[in-house]
Design a protein around this nucleic acid. Structure first.
Lengths: 124, 124
DNA sequence: CTGTATCCACGCTGATACTG
DNA sequence: CAGTATCAGCGTGGATACAG
């Protein structure tokens, strides 16, 4: 019964695990970019936009550790490193797309609900 | 083009908006619980488990502000407050379920990928 | 019962500088 | 090119106490 309910700290709760991963600021953007095909570190950096190399590395490492992204280093000079979604990584795009689709459909309403709320209560 | 790509700080990016909301620790649990039907504050508290009243209130207020949850106060003694998903709130359950379903299917693999990774690299 | 008010510690994140 | 190292700031969330 560890789905939309359950202890949020339970490391065995699958939903919490994935939520913790996609809840950060860059993971979804990186997965979305890699969905178009493999990309190099610098390509990802400019495609995502505004991400520091530290954060990009950190995001990529987490994804790699989870088996969602494949990291390939080519022994060249200058160094070339390519990242690609694994098969599992690919499957994650679907629920993410569902979320994106929902967002595009309803967030405008959410935003206007916020305005209305802020108008009737104190806007800070 | 503000979907799985785009500026993560853009307040107009729908995906970012929803990700910011469900990325926290309690929102998904609360929505999941309310999916079974309306519930009172104390019912939510025990159903979710481990949440402080501060955090539960904060989560509920955010959901209410976004028009996803309806808050109804009954002028009784002792006070009774009931929370329920709005129509829009209900629609959000679908993409959340998709995510949950994905999680249940693939997180076991993710977890073993982590173990494998930690074995080959330094485990802390 | 249903919250509100404080205080505080932790972790995430960005900026900056440096390296193979 | 593709990172790593270090540091500092800020927000998020928990504990606790109190209130309508």
């Amino acid at each position: 019964m560890s789905g939309l309910e359950g202890n949020p700290y339970d490391p065995n709760c699958p939903t919490r695990t994935i939520l913790d991963r996609i809840g950060d600021r860059w993971t979804v953007l990186v997965v979305g970019t890699l969905g178009h095909g493999p990309a190099r570190f610098s390509q990802l950096a400019s495609a995502v936009g505004g991400v520091s190399s530290k954060m990009l590395t950190q995001t990529l490492r987490a994804l790699e550790r989870d088996g969602l992204v494949q990291r390939t280093v080519y022994a060249e000079v200058p160094p070339r490193v390519e990242y690609a979604l694994t098969d599992i990584g690919q499957t994650m795009r679907e629920p993410l797309s569902a979320l994106e689709h929902w967002a595009k459909s309803y967030v405008p309403e959410v935003l206007s609900a916020r305005e209305a709320y802020d108008t009737h209560h104190g806007v800070k």
